[in-house]
């Protein structure tokens, strides 16, 4: 190994610093979820499962969790279907307004979620969709189209169009070609986009905030609890969410790697 110069050593330290900045807060969250005290301060007060038990006894929180899972699942399924179709349209066809169509789909990715939420709220009110979890699912599925479209389009751009011509040449119709050639080649992108959409929907606040009715999702529950103050229960449910997120990441890395 080559000797590092002084400034390179400095950079190694700096990078460790940034990584610590990124991970220490998460560690703090997990540590305090096991801390036997109502306040999150040092020195630690001893180990407890109490906050986890409290989570599982909190029916309001569990209902919110269930709502979040249902919303995330439905929104992901919907956005994957529409998003994949949209990516195919954008990849294969020229039509007037194509640029507007693409930019509109991608816009929610960089636009603050509140603006999208407000736009949807205005519109839903006008056409009579009531504030509800259904409205949230439609809102999420629409706002997350950009995630699916950008990933699937990137993958389609790498796919050789002559494969499609070869498939047609060998006698496969468009539908058969889609399922036997196109879909396998974009599957990693769909998987990746699906996982990301699920995570984002599960975690979404601004759009949900405006579109949900009496039923609330977990982030909204946590958000409204936090406005009142800290409770270690949040540390416990938070730690569990972190754990599940990490498992999902490992799963997705594994899934996407096998495809290569």
């Amino acid at each position: 190994m080559k000797q590092l110069l002084w400034w390179q050593k400095g950079m190694v330290g700096f990078v460790f610093g940034v990584l610590a900045f990124l991970y220490l807060p998460i560690v703090v969250l997990v540590v305090f979820s096991f801390n036997d005290s109502k306040v999150t301060s040092f020195p630690l007060a001893g180990f407890t499962w109490h906050w986890y038990q409290a989570v599982f006894a909190n029916t309001q929180m569990l209902t919110a969790l269930k709502n979040s899972l249902i919303v995330a699942l439905c929104a992901t399924g919907l956005t994957l279907t529409i998003g994949t179709l949209a990516a195919l349209v954008l990849d294969r066809h020229e039509f007037p307004g194509k640029g507007l169509f693409r930019n509109a789909i991608l816009l929610p990715l960089s636009l603050p979620g509140l603006v999208t939420g407000i736009a949807m709220l205005n519109f839903y009110k006008q056409i009579g969709i009531p504030q509800s979890l259904t409205a949230v699912v439609i809102g999420h599925a629409t706002a997350l189209l950009g995630v699916v479209v950008s990933q699937v389009m990137a993958r389609l751009a790498k796919t050789d169009h002559r494969q499609l011509e070869a498939s047609a040449d060998l006698g496969a119709g468009p539908v058969e070609t889609f399922f036997r050639i196109t879909l396998p080649s974009i599957r990693p992108a769909i998987l990746g986009a699906g996982l990301l959409s699920f995570t984002l929907s599960f975690d979404e606040i601004p759009v949900t905030y405006f579109l949900t009715g009496r039923d609330i999702t977990l982030p909204i529950y946590i958000y409204s609890t936090l406005r009142r103050g800290i409770t270690p229960e949040i540390n416990a449910i938070g730690s569990m969410i972190v754990l599940v997120s990490l498992l999902l990441i490992i799963l997705s890395v594994g899934l996407l790697r096998d495809r290569k």
């Binding site: 998460i26 703090v28 999150t40 975690d203 938070g238």
Partner: peptide, 30 residues
């Protein structure tokens, strides 16, 4: 990957951790 992974962890929770850390009775002060 280590830099990107936090994006997958709930954005609300990541904001919340700083409330635990920076609070008057928070982790940093204590």
């Amino acid at each position: 990957m280590a830099v990107i992974v936090p994006l997958w962890v709930s954005y609300l929770l990541r904001a919340y951790t700083w409330k635990i850390i920076l609070g008057t009775d928070g982790a940093l002060n204590s």
